[in-house]
Design a protein around this nucleic acid. Sequence first.
DNA 1: TTTAGGG
DNA 2: CCCTAAA
Length: 688
Amino acid sequence: MVLQRRLEYGFNGYQVPAMPRASRSVRGRVSSRKKVEDNQMGAFELLATVAGKLLLERESSPASSNASAGKDQHANVTDIIKQEQQDEEKSLKAEPCDQGSCDESVLVSEPGSEGHNQNYYPKESPNALDDADPGLASIVTNSECSEKNGCAEKLVIGSSKNAIGSSSRKIEEGSPGYGEFCEGKAGNGIARQLEAVQRKTGMINGAVADSCSSEDPMELDRKPPLLVSSDSSVEVPMCRDHIPLGSFPRRWDDVKVVSRDDDENSSGCNQPSTIIKAFRPPSRIGDRRIRKLLASKYWKIAPKLKDGELSNTDGETRPVYRFRKSCYTRQRSQRNFPFKRRKLFDRSSVSKSDGGISSEQIFNSPEKSINGDSIGSASGASSPVVGQQTSFRSRDSHVKLSIKSLRVPELVIEIPETETVGSLKRTILEAVTAILGGGLRVGVLLQGKKVRDDNKTLLQTGISHDDKLDALGFTLEPNPAQAPPPLCPDDPPFLLSCGTPQSLTRYEATPTLDPGSSDASPDPPITMLGDFVESDHDSVPSPTEMLTDETTPDSRALIAIPAMSIDALAVVPLHRKAPRSELVQRRIRRPFSVSEVEALVQAVEKLGTGRWRDVKLRAFDNANHRTYVDLKDKWKTLVHTARISPQQRRGEPVPQDLLDRVLSAHAYWSKKQAKQQVKQHSDTCFLL
DNA sequence: TTTAGGG
DNA sequence: CCCTAAA
C-alpha cells in the first residue's frame, strides 16, 4: 500500500472520508467477497484530485493569437518541457493545500462476480462487455479510436457531459469544440472528440500512435506487475477545436492513459470485476451502503470497460488511489476467505485473488508506456504537463478557455499477476470511475488559490488578465452537494464526517478569494454514473441520478466525500445532525422489469421456492443488485400481486400469463413442500 | 451464508 | 426493501 501525499501541485483534490462500515453490515446480501474486502479496508479516504489546466485564451485578434500560437509551434521540445516543468512548479508552490498524507485509498477488489452481463443469463450474452454501456458516463474507453486509428485506444476519463462538459461549456461557450462534447454517450463523446482532435492535429501518428505500439503489452507483462501505480495523473484530454494547433497540446502527452488494446480478450464474463472499496475504520455508517453500492455498481462497471492503462509520468507523489484487485490477501489470510459465496459470483475470478496476492510491487509505469512520454520523461518533470494557457484578447472581452486536460492524481493499482490485461483495464477504469463517479464539480484555481466566489466576474477575479492566465487551473472536485436537500447551508458540508475522525478530510483549500461561496461551478448536478452499473437491461436510475445537486452554498474547502463516490454520496445525508449510524441508506429502488420477472418465474418453476440462492445463480447471476433475498421478496410480492385484482396492482404491469405461472408455480411448490414436511413428520413419528 | 418471514 | 431469527 502506498500512501502518498495527497495533493500535489496546484491540484485540488477531494478526499473521501472514510466510509463508516457497519460492522454488522457485512451481512448476507453482499457477496462475501465484497464483505471481506470491506472488512479489510481500514480507514480510507479517497482522495481524488483531478486537476487540469486550461488553455485560456481570449477571443482575439488574429494577431495576438498568432503570436501565441506561433510561439508554441516553434517551441522545441526542450522548451516545452521546461515550460511545463515550470508550470508544474508554480502550481506546486502555489498550492500546497494538501498537506496530509493520504491514507485514503480506494481499493478495488474483484467481487468475484462478473457483473457484466446484461442479462441474467450471462453465458448467453458474451458480448455484454463490449456493449457500450450507456451508464458509463465517466470513463469510457474509446474503442472507436482504436478502430479508426487502428491503434490507440484510450481510456478517456471524463465526467459525464455534465462534469466536464459543463465546465467546458462554462468556459468556452460557443467554441466549436464544445458542442461535440456532449454528443452521444458522455464518455464516448469525449473519446470521440479526442479522436477528432487527434486527427486534426495529426497527433494520432505521433504520440498516441507510438504509445500504442510500444507500451501496451509490456506494462502488464512486467514480471510481477501486481501493483501498478501511475504516478502521474491520468489526464483527461479535452478537445477544443478552436484552439490553434500550435497551442494544442503538442502531443497527447497529456493523455496519460493510453492503451491500445483492442484485445481485451478478456472474456467478458470471466473477468472478475472489481470492486472499489474503501478502507475504513470500523465505523459503521456507510458501511453497508458502501458494500452494496459498490457491489452492485462498481463491479458491474468494470466489465464493461475495456481498457485503459495508466502510465505514470510523474514521479511525484500524489494522492494515490489504490485499487486492488482481489487482494484481501496479505492481511487476511486466505483461509479467511471461505467464499462459499464464491459459488455464486465467482467463476473464474476467484482464483485470481489467490495467485496475485503474492507480490506487491509498485511499478510505475513511466513515461515509457506512453509515447508522448518521451517528453515528459525527458523533462523529468514529474507531472505531466497539464496544459498551457494562452490568452488572447478579444474586443468583446470574452475570455475563452480551453481545457486541455483534467488530471487525475496518481492511481495505484494492485492486482494479482494472474489477472488478465482486460481485468487490469477494468480495474483501472473502476478506480477512475470511483474517483470521478461521485459527481464532480469544477474548481477554479488562480495562482494556486481557489476561487470560491462564483459570483465574481472573471475580470474581478483576475482571470482575464493575461499575466494570470498561467496560474489558472481547474480542478475536478467531488460534488459535496450530493446529499439530500436538507442541508444546513451554513454548516460545513461534511458528509460522512461526523463519526469518523479520519474520514474528515481537511481540505482547507488554499487561501480563497472569497470564502463562503463555493468554488464549484454552477454546473448542473453531475450525474456521471448513470446506471452504468446495471448489468440489466432495464436501467435503473443510479443513485447518482437521484442526487440533488444542491450545492451547498457554503462549500468551503472542506469537502468530505464518501469514498464510494456515487452511492455513498447519494446516500450520505449532509445533515450532520443525523447520527451517522442512522445514515445507512437504503438501496435504491429498482423495480423488477417484466423480463426480470420472467426470469424469476422461470427459475422458480424449475427450482421451486425455497432455493433462492439457486434461483439467483440461475437467473440473476449477473444482476448484482438482485440478491437472493430480493428474489425471494419479489416472489412474495408476485404471488401477492397475482392474487389481487389487476386494478389494485401498481407499477409496471406484469403480464397476466406470468402471474398465472406464478400462482401455479407457487401452488405446486407449496404443495410439494407441504408433502415433504408431512413425509418428514411421518417419518419422524415412525422412528419414534 | 441462506432461508423464511415480518415490517 | 429492510431487518432478523434460525438454521
